[in-house]
Amino acid sequence: MAEPMKIRATLKNNMAEIRVLVAHPMETGQRKDATGAIVPTHFIHSMTVHLNETLVYDGQWSQAISRNPVFALRIKGAKIGDKVVVHWMDNKNDKRNDEITLQA
């Protein structure tokens, strides 16, 4: 099972800024290991964020996203106590769900 994501959510003037750090190798399929064998692709292809069960960010990613991805989004009209759920799935069907409650 993948490591938990680090999610930071700050609220300013009704605008939530959510920053997420994911632990993931994001292998491109271009890199070779010490023996010269190509390391197969292994990357997150789907990244979604829900605010109180409503889909706000529906991301499709490629292997070009950096290792241990960091991404951010902003949501208007969010309130303290709102629940933010971040979910990813990679091309090996590994997945992870983490959530955080918006705080002041």
Partner: peptide, 28 residues
């Protein structure tokens, strides 16, 4: 990223109050 081996890095739909804002770190 036009000269990457596979140029399309990400496509993101922003819905239901998400601001037209996007931040990510990519490989080039």
């Amino acid at each position: 990223a036009e000269k990457n081996p596979f140029p399309l890095a990400a496509q993101v739909e922003l819905l239901n109050g998400a601001e037209p804002y996007f931040y990510v770190r990519i490989k080039m």
